[in-house]
Design a protein around this nucleic acid. Structure first.
Lengths: 332, 332
DNA sequence: CAGATTTTTGCAACCGGTTGCAATTTTCTC
DNA sequence: GAGAAAATTGCAACCGGTTGCAAAAATCTG
């Protein structure tokens, strides 16, 4: 059924090595044999078996793409960019959906069985130890959207969440709000922890401003809405920094339903700038995370690490910026 | 660096075959050797190379998941369900992002090189010929969200788009609307063509109702909004059937911005019932497409076809139903 | 055109597994 | 405990490729 090297070799009247060589970049083949082989290959519709060759070359061109964010619309953009970026370099994404799993053991085993050349962990909630589990078994790995550490054990590409927290605080302070709050994502998420830290840190310099913090159970519309509904039962703050965009959108829906107006009664700033944030019916003021750059850089890094496995772990943080839209009142 | 069968065999003091057999379901190994092998395997952290074994078994457990819908939030749900469903059966999704490509040649070549056991084409816009290209080279394939044909050449799992068009028409008719319209997705998309057909077909029985049709350039917020803005320059219809949910949400934003109220001034019904449709700030009346069933059935079918490649092509259509929310006035 | 150089080629071993077969060991039967 | 049946085991060939090496062919040199 399947056409192999041998079939092509037979038909072309050459050795199997000759066939292999015509399909190997930079191998030594005369124009004459190459022609014969290519002719035979086309006639037989031959296409080389990438997995068989991986056995000797040690390269599968398979990249494990591991994520646990299959409910945040931002991640559709992330998967789009990752898959396209990988494909452009001739790499194939093997997708792993972690769901609620946080133990790397299964993913590591599975991706090792498939001899992936490298792994990209795309998650803003998993701890650094997750990606480290891949490094521990010698698989090049980069953690995208991961947490910064001063002495990283694996490559991390993302944003400075602490700085983002500060940036959000500054934006609210600049607008003269006296009661502000952080409505974070799930409490254990590294990104939420860091954003909270930066936010509180920046506000500690403003003793006249009242600050509060609470957490939604997930980076999701429903969780953001539920938490905001809870907050509205008491006296809410004047302005909120939402843990991310989708959660903020959920919170805003609760605010509208309560008959309050945005940004007059309550201001909101999100984080991510996902495509939906600029939809005219959402129009969310937010902190833009440059995901295209993060992803391109992650791919670069994993490719580089495949080429040089001893490469020193690196942290690449990209600057974020505020995108002014309609959920935060203008600067005075 | 990597631990192989031989290393384990050596350490356990048995033959390579014995090691292979302990890791093969249902092979003949004594409890004693199995114990020795497992001990050695654990000590060496051995895990079998799935690709090497695929060479002899002819099974990679790799499934190509091909899609061109990386901008429609519905497809995040689709990818989530597919990846989880495949993983549960021990299958690994190799993701292919078609972007704007509509020629199957590249995907076919690539997925053949990786010896995928089967392919799932997840797209409501690609023509049947796309999936057929896989069947032509002997790869089991199912087209999810594909177009129904009476004598299919490949498996198709999805909904009856023509019936959905009729259902939408009936919903608008039942509400007494006299000027209705279909605001479709991209003109070439099979799903849009069929929905338009069903819609128009059902309305042809109502000569007193004025019908019009137009097309957005994509199943996207921006395209839906742009087309609606165009429509609002003239006299718009009283009620619209939107090609899908995300496009409908875009159209609704234009309607709101024009100062018109929904559903009083203009009614809207979408299609898909993606997660966002039930967000309280969207609250879209829509036709629910049972994606979980479609996906589970697609996986069943591809697995079944891998087991029996001569299986006759099958079309499985799932019933849709209207989900009443806030964008269509209640039945009189 | 002979001899030296370079390029091309095929052989054979190998990558990490699986599997049919025959030999060996274990278990069963009486 | 002997003989037959069943279970286990290792050998060796194979899956579809790649690659070092030496032989063969082509090209260059004077």
């Amino acid at each position: 059924m399947t056409v192999t090297l041998k079939d092509v070799a037979l038909r072309a009247g050459v050795s199997r090595s000759a066939v292999s060589r015509t399909f190997t970049e930079g191998a030594s083949v005369s124009a004459k044999t190459r022609a014969k082989v290519e002719k035979a290959a086309i006639e037989l519709k031959y296409s080389p078996n990438a997995l068989a060759s991986s056995l000797t070359t040690g390269r599968t061109k398979l990249i494990g793409l591991v994520s646990n964010n299959f409910h945040n619309p931002l991640f559709l953009e992330v998967f789009d960019l990752f898959t396209r970026g990988l494909q452009e370099r001739g790499l194939r994404p093997l997708l792993v959906n972690l769901s609620a799993e946080t133990d790397p053991a299964n993913s590591v085993r599975m991706l090792r069985q498939y001899s992936v050349d490298g792994v990209i962990v795309a998650s803003s909630t998993l701890p650094p130890s997750f990606a480290e589990a891949f490094r521990d078994v010698g698989i090049p790995v980069v953690h995208s959207f991961g947490r910064y550490t001063s002495s990283p054990h694996v490559h991390v590409v993302g944003i400075d969440n602490i700085a983002c927290g500060r940036m959000a605080a500054a934006a609210l302070v600049a607008r003269g709000h006296k009661r502000v709050a952080f409505l974070g994502g799930p409490k254990g998420a590294t990104s939420t922890e860091d954003r909270a830290r930066g936010f509180l840190d920046a506000l500690s310099a403003h003793p006249d401003i009242a600050v509060s913090v609470s957490y939604a159970s997930a980076y999701s519309f429903d969780a953001g809405r539920a938490e905001m509904i809870r907050l509205l039962q008491d006296t809410p703050a004047e302005a909120y920094f939402g843990g991310d965009d989708v959660l903020s959108i959920g919170a805003l829906s609760a605010i509208h339903d309560a008959g309050l107006r945005v940004p007059d009664d309550i201001g909101f700033i999100g984080l991510n700038d996902m495509a939906m944030a600029r939809w005219q019916n959402i129009n969310l003021t937010t902190i833009r995370q440059p995901i295209a750059e993060i992803i391109a850089s992650s791919i670069d890094l994993v490719v580089g690490t495949i080429a040089d496995p001893d490469r020193h772990p690196e942290t690449r943080l990209f600057p974020c910026s505020i995108v002014e839209r309609g959920t935060l009142r203008p600067l005075p």
